[in-house]
């Protein structure tokens, strides 16, 4: 896709080099006659380089200082036992990594993250698809519906978490009251206090919060499916379900795969909602890697451990992203280009 669009730019740009600093490019060179992959270096005058540097430097500097430097700092921290004050002196090599990877709390957190990655996709994909397919038809109030389903997504996780925390208060919260009213027994320790239920409860709230993103993206993808396909299928006597299964869902493939990628990366970083609802408890049942590294870092001043956990999280996210890219997304890129 990017290369596609790059061609006109490449052929258009020889002309501007007739500016003051131009010397290498003959002015009368026909703009369209040059092969796109040709000797671009010849065009790079000093002035042009300065312009490029002027435009790109602020963004690159920001990335270097606030993204790359902290991550390198995490790597550095991970090699020391360090309480966050004074110089890092107590070098422990891979000691912190051994501690992290043998720490039950971290391993529980990692498993919780992986559970949330898998459950998010397993729950939200069919549900989001079902809602999107149902809403993708001419019906009264469709615009309002699309807006409404988007509301939880635009709320801050903190706001959503605080509201749900109140709704789920044991006994006198709304949910437990309703459950008792119909004669059922709500969980004795509350939805978020029960070791077996807490993670599922968090998962339910996450579904509520993020299903809107799936639906909105799927609906937008459905808009791209040409009307003619539906008409043709209808003429051929296909049922609604057959049309969805054979035409709509396959055409939605790229959208679904990219959504799943976003969902995966988000799930690996989960922090806000859990911090508000449970702080990772009870007994680390809802802890995530992000909760772990914040607890170790800023709460317990084990910055070496926090650094090692950050690096481990980074590697896991990177490996999953690259694997996913290789397995699914690259196919789409080829298809689109």
């Amino acid at each position: 896709m990017a290369d596609d669009a790059a061609v006109p730019t490449a052929t258009a740009s020889p002309a501007p080099s007739s500016g003051p600093a131009a010397g290498t490019t003959p002015q009368g060179r026909p703009a369209a006659g040059r092969p796109a992959g040709g000797r671009r270096a010849a065009d790079s005058t000093l002035r042009k380089r300065l312009e490029i540097a002027f435009f790109v430097t602020p963004a690159l500097a920001m990335l270097a200082v606030f993204v790359v430097w902290p991550i390198l700092t995490a790597v550095q921290m991970s090699a020391y036992r360090w309480n966050g004050r004074g110089p890092m002196e107590d070098f422990v090599g891979i000691g912190n990594y051994v501690s992290v990877l043998t720490d039950d709390v971290f391993l529980d957190s990692l498993l919780n993250n992986l559970f949330i990655v898998a459950a998010s996709i397993a729950i939200q994909l069919p549900l989001g698809l079902a809602i999107a397919l149902l809403l993708n038809r001419k019906m009264w109030g469709q615009g309002a519906l699309r807006t409404i389903i988007f509301v939880p997504y635009v709320l801050a996780e903190v706001v959503a978490g605080v509201i749900w925390f109140q709704l789920l208060q044991p006994q006198y919260g709304l949910l437990d009251t309703l459950i008792s009213a119909v004669g059922l027994e709500p969980p004795a320790q509350g939805w978020l206090g029960d070791v077996d239920l807490a993670l599922w409860t968090v998962m339910g709230i996450l579904t509520w919060k993020f299903i809107g993103l799936a639906v909105i993206l799927f609906l937008a993808g459905l808009q791209g499916v040409p009307e003619e396909l539906y008409e043709a299928a209808q003429l051929d006597g296909a049922s609604w379900w057959q049309v969805q299964r054979k035409i709509t869902i396959p055409l939605l493939g790229p959208t679904i795969r990219t959504w799943a990628f976003l969902s995966m990366i988000g799930s690996l970083q989960l922090f806000d909602m859990v911090w508000i609802l449970t702080k990772g408890g009870p007994a680390n049942a809802t802890s995530t890697m992000a909760i772990f590294l914040v607890n170790e870092g800023t709460r317990s001043n084990n910055f070496g451990i926090a650094g090692a956990a950050s690096v481990v999280l980074f590697v896991i996210a990177l490996v999953m992203a690259v694997l996913y890219q290789r397995l699914f997304l690259s196919r789409d890129a080829k298809g689109v280009a």
Partner: peptide
């Protein structure tokens, strides 16, 4: 590919 969460403690 650099999640903000990874960098938050060193940041």
């Amino acid at each position: 590919l650099f999640p903000a969460t990874v960098a938050v403690v060193p940041l």
